[in-house]
Amino acid sequence: MTKNTVYKIVVLLAVYIITGQLFAEDFSRRHQTMIKDIEDTVRETRHYLDKEMFDQRVMDVMAKVPRHEFVPSSQQDNAYQNRPLPIGYGQTISQPYIVALMTDLIETRSEDRVLEIGTGSAYQAAVLAELVNEVYSIEVVEALGEKAAKRLQRLNYNNVHTRIGDGYYGWPEQAPFDAIVVTAAASHVPPPLINQLKAGGRMVIPVGSRFMTQQLLLVEKSNDGTIATRQVMPVVFVPLTGKH
């Protein structure tokens, strides 16, 4: 190896380390801003959501999971903006605020087993993996599912189990689940998923388009097995001016 080559390698390494550090710092700063943004939003929506803030565990995890690892390289700059981003295959990674809200709504405990329908980028699965014991995630788009599985493996989310296939029938071998998160579009609530929900369990489904979540449907199974739903708007907006 010539002196010149060694010199080049050293310079390259230095540049790599410095820029890497800069990017890391930059991501960290943006990540914090995103979390603050979500907290501010929750404070504003407290009357509607009936709580001052999301579960602190959820917010801690939102602050921990590196969203930039779950978006394509072309979107890394936008990774910590509080908005949905395209991830290819016509799919999106959800708006962080919506991810936090959905996670908060299912009220997880550390010993829980959670089923996710629609792995997508695996960001939601990673957030859940930090909060619960086991996550089972099913993706219907093969290429997306494979990428997500590799990503989860690389980031050491070993408690997330993935599968490619039809999410309609859930994951009967691992049922029942304490909570179910459906991130894929659903024309109705699949009855097999309700059956796989434990008594006292919760299921959350976003309603709207890929980029715009209009409402969240929260399905609650009581201890006697009866089903109730709550429709939660992700925005604090009172449609009446009170003039009438």
Binding site: Y48, T229, R230, F237, P239, L240, T241, K243, H244
Partner: peptide
């Protein structure tokens, strides 16, 4: 069964059908 924060569907339908519909429409966002 499908609970909303308030029974807005019923309250608004009542206003439109039996109350002052014009004022309701004017005051709705």
């Amino acid at each position: 069964f499908n609970q909303l924060a308030t029974p807005i569907f019923y309250q608004s339908a009542k206003q439109l059908l039996t109350g002052n519909a014009d004022a309701f429409v004017q005051g709705y966002k």
